[in-house]
């Protein structure tokens, strides 16, 4: 086994340290070293989005980032989207709109959609479809996913009393 590197980073707001080989992707580190299996491997070459995470505020495919690149970075995974017991509006909308069937692509969609709403709280349908084009879903035909994202955007519009 190749020499492992020590990496200090922040994952879902918690200071985190791990050891990894340079050839291990962030996806491998999350899943195999840290037990965070919410990000999924669908293609391992950046074409399906099932492994999406938010790295320093931007959505990336974790299969196309090396673990060693996380030094000093801030990472958010699907496990960090909810606020404790309280689901994120996107998560709630996915449940209510039946926007998942098998659910394997769901973490990637929610992470990507969160990055979208963080940058544009009021996207229209085309913007949602364009932004999520890097996330493949084979079960839903996208209809209910797009509706869920639009619904979550609407929900966020309502000011908190």
């Amino acid at each position: 086994m190749a020499r492992r590197t020590h990496v200090t980073t922040s994952i879902n707001g918690l200071p985190t340290e791990f050891l990894c080989e340079p050839r291990q992707s962030v996806l491998e580190v999350l899943r195999d070293e840290l037990g965070l299996t919410g990000a999924k491997e669908g293609c391992n070459n950046g074409n399906c989005g099932a492994c999406a995470v938010i790295l320093n505020g931007r959505v990336v495919n974790s299969c196309c980032v090396l673990g060693v690149e996380l030094e000093g970075a801030e990472l958010t995974t699907i496990e960090g989207i909810a606020d404790g017991e309280k689901l994120h509006p996107l998560q709630q909308a996915f449940l209510e709109e039946a926007a998942l069937q098998c659910g394997i692509c769901t973490p990637g969609f929610i992470v990507s959609a969160k990055a979208l709403l963080d940058s544009d709280p009021h996207p229209d349908e085309h913007k949602v479809r364009f932004w999520l084009a890097g996330n493949l879903c084979r079960c839903t035909g996208y209809d209910k996913i797009v509706r869920a994202v639009l619904k979550a955007a609407d929900a966020a519009e309502t000011p908190v009393p």
Binding site: V59, L116, G134
Partner: peptide, 9 residues
């Protein structure tokens, strides 16, 4: 070039 997640990098 790629999707949103690709363009971040």
């Amino acid at each position: 070039i790629g999707g949103t997640a690709i363009q971040s990098r």
